[in-house]
Design a protein around this nucleic acid. Structure first.
Lengths: 218, 218
DNA sequence: GTATAAAGTTAGATCAATCTAAACAATGAT
DNA sequence: ATCATTGTTTAGATTGATCTAACTTTATAC
């Protein structure tokens, strides 16, 4: 069974693979905050276990077995986040840190039970898809808010990245998933967008923020 | 912050202290299933941290700081067990293994939330007391069923030990905490007791079992 | 009261996960 | 085409938790 460290490397490789193209050792070591030699030796270890493709000096990638393992760790993470928010009343900005630890618990029954109690949710509190028992992920192709035009009326459904600070920022603007947004205007110069929502909220969101908000046209 | 291994040693020392008198290294290594040298070096480490009293060739004991730390780990363990039973619907025989892992999670907020959602329970699913935030334990002095006499009508309130098999055994007899029991007769020869409960259940319980059942006279 | 058994200790090895320093390979800029 | 920069790998050390083998101390039994 994979150690906590191994699970963390798998998860990092999975994440890197989905948002960058080629994965270098330095990306991995940077993401996990370890030295490159450390990441290097772990990659060799995972290679031995048939979880990653590895050749000296070449980019790293997960094997299909590795992808499945990684997805299952991500499943545990996201189920935990959802459980903490839905059943225990934590704010969405508090759950990542706890889920980082809970995801390593060896107990299929625990996660199955969370899944049942939650009614087999498809997404986590940040709108990210929860892989199924077999590690399959249903990728939805959402639009970025930044790609919307004035007059568009859309629903906020997910976030591309969800750091603590970003979530706090969204909280402070009363922005949450499921909300309907109206694009009032877009500043062509800097990409700032004026958005209105919830009867009487009107905010100017920077391009940086709009990049990270995923929306669905109804 | 204490590592998982350290927390496990503290817990073991606490448990040994409450049910045996003097704690030897071999008791500790036996309980944790490690070699005596391993236990020995960990005890030295805990001694350095001011958590145990240690002198060569002398019995081991926890310092007050050590006792507090240990109690807080036990608190996390028991809150988790209670949460798993009460809020997630697990059977009392399933929760120990999961709680052994969850107890090591570093997140005061998680356990505080469990405590709140459970309404600040005083006991866990096996009737053992849950230490408070400061590590204080309210020791109740229960009677063993084995000390009861024919005609006694008592309530089953706790277990002295709760192995998987013992819990399964109790399940099979439909024995659970909170139940009222009537002592029908006691076999002086071997200590077997005839017990009736729940309208039409009547069972002969061995002395070994009766030793492990704690009851309260109403 | 000495011999033997039991319990505890020391020494030294191993393994996983990490590090730093130094060597090496690939890449891109002139 | 060469060289400097960047990225990767090797070598070797460290730390925490574990082990076995060998030795020492304490307790027990006669």
């Amino acid at each position: 069974m994979a150690s906590q460290a191994e699970e963390n490397y798998l998860k990092a490789l999975f994440t890197l693979a989905s948002d960058s193209g080629e994965i270098g050792l330095s990306d991995l070591s940077e993401m996990l905050q370890v030295s490159t030699p450390t990441a290097n030796s772990m990659v060799k270890n995972l290679h031995q276990q048939g979880l990653v493709h590895y050749e000296k000096y070449k980019p790293i990638s997960l094997t299909s077995k590795g992808k499945k393992e990684a997805s299952l760790v991500i499943r545990k993470h996201r189920l935990t986040e959802m459980y903490l928010v839905e059943k225990m009343g934590f704010g969405w900005e508090k759950v990542h840190e706890i889920a980082e630890q809970v995801e390593h618990i060896k107990s299929p029954a625990l996660f199955e039970r969370m899944d049942e109690l939650l009614g087999h949710p498809k997404i986590d509190p940040h709108g990210s898809p929860i892989p199924d028992r077999n590690g399959k992920i249903e990728w939805k192709s959402y639009h970025k808010l930044s790609e919307c035009k004035p007059g568009d009326s859309i629903r906020l459904v997910a976030l591309t990245h969800s750091s603590d600070e970003f979530l706090q920022y969204l909280n402070s603007k009363r922005l949450s998933l499921g909300l309907m947004l109206q694009v009032e205007s877009v500043e062509t110069f800097d990409g700032n967008m004026a958005i209105s929502y919830l009867k009487n909220h009107r905010e100017i969101l920077s391009a940086k923020v709009c990049e990270k908000l995923l929306v669905e046209k109804e």
